[in-house]
Design a protein around this nucleic acid. Structure first.
Lengths: 247, 247
DNA sequence: AACTTGGTTTCGATAGGTGAAACAGCTATT
DNA sequence: AATAGCTGTTTCACCTATCGAAACCAAGTT
């Protein structure tokens, strides 16, 4: 599939690191189970990761968790212009007016990734783990991220062989046009049972999309009417975000 | 040195990742130079890192930079109880009252690492890159981090063979006692010419130290007298932080 | 046209990573 | 006390996947 020549040992080490996006604390055996690798292989790789400071182990439980080095790398990632931090205040403000969970998504290849979220304060609410990756085929934000991508990107995405066959591409394509027209997308129990969502693109200067901002919640509360009602609220937020991103 | 059996390929991959803490954008040849590895080795490892999403390459310059996966990992690092975020408001408050740069340091092995910083708003100020690593032998925060470590940790640190010979251990040990007595440490042009700093430990519940909070600035402005003056300010901040950390 | 400078590919030799299995240390169960 | 069961750790012989030199391209420079 991937033509590139890669290094297996390194690949495995990175896979192990990524296990920690699913669970904060992991023991050696848990990791061997998750990765399907041999126990001693994992053992050696864990030793390397620990040695380099990417993992630390809790002195009591002996379980591993992500170490300082991750933090260090993060600190050198984007930073000042990091929308995940930059937009946070605006997202909180939106959350307070609509009283539902607000999420910010980026597109990364054929997936979207939740880079920031502030949760509704209501008892019944959508919980949204950061860093979660989801397919581009379903969900309001996915459709926004595809609809406002450049034509070339769009072609690439729709040509993706891993696209689920359950999603009718023609119908999807028509939806995209509609979304471009009205400037927002909605979804009702599309990706996740019991939740619906509205999403709006966040455009940078030169009109290129940088992210999708979404409000999501339980279907009972977030009806179609309610969503249409709050679209202007979201747009206010995104337009302010766009001003921030422009400077 | 390190008795543990580690995996070389993985080690190298991680080394390459860490190069990006020094420079945000790197090309293949730059990395080969920095690491001293063979060009094709680096090439393959970069392919692996890119494949796994830890690096992305800029379509124009062809240079690599850290990718989303780093963000994803970070998002799953501590988080809720992450002092780097938790203490930020308190640090800003302190910055506003003392009008100097405020930094938060953790100890990691035989180094300290700047995990958070808010900069003085004055024109002349200490700039403080996040994630920077510094030796434990010099600097106000280093001394705090050593002085308030557990006896066992302290022994380990002082026994570190890489300890610079220029630092007199006996004198250092006496300083530590003094610091424990008075509850804070100062330094004048110790690690960095032209800057001085005051530092105070942030203790968690059960009195164990979790970090060192420091105020630093140019020697002209941050005189000994001035530092003694602001010690109570810092302590107010740390005591509030301690309450936050306790819950 | 010869010479850089950067990324990419090939290929044979062998370092070194791999996995099975044994070991050790601990707790729960009999 | 003996047993079983679950960790993490270490050993070792095999052989594959990794490595580095060198060749190869493709763009710029001189």
């Amino acid at each position: 599939m991937e033509g590139k020549k890669t290094v297996r040992a390194a690949e495995r080490a990175l896979d192990i690191l990524l296990c920690f996006t699913r669970k904060r604390e992991l023991s050696l055996t848990e990791i061997t189970r998750m990765t399907g690798l041999n126990k001693s292989t994992v053992y050696r790789l864990l030793a390397t990761l620990e040695d380099k400071g990417f993992l630390v182990r809790d002195s009591e439980t002996d379980k591993y968790q992500l170490g300082f080095r991750v933090w260090e790398l993060y600190a050198n990632l984007s930073r000042t212009d990091d929308p995940a931090i930059l937009f946070l205040p605006e997202m909180e403000r939106l959350r307070d007016t609509v009283e539902e969970t607000v999420s910010l998504y980026f597109r990364d290849g054929f997936e979207r990734i939740r880079v920031q979220a502030v949760e509704s304060l209501q008892a019944i609410r959508r919980v949204a783990p950061l860093g979660a990756r989801m397919p581009l085929a379903v969900g309001a934000s996915s459709k926004v991220l595809v609809a406002f991508a450049t034509p070339a990107e769009q072609r690439a995405i729709l040509a993706d062989p891993s696209w689920p066959s359950s999603v009718d591409r023609e119908r999807y394509r028509r939806q995209l046009e509609e979304i471009r027209d009205q400037g927002y997308a909605t979804s009702v129990e599309e990706r996740e049972a019991g939740t619906s969502a509205v999403s709006v693109p966040v455009l940078g200067r030169d009109r290129r999309m940088i992210a999708a901002l979404a409000v999501s919640g339980p279907v009972e509360r977030l009806t179609m009417d309610r969503m249409k009602e709050i679209v202007p609220r979201i747009m206010e937020a995104t337009s302010r975000m766009q001003k921030m991103a422009a400077k």
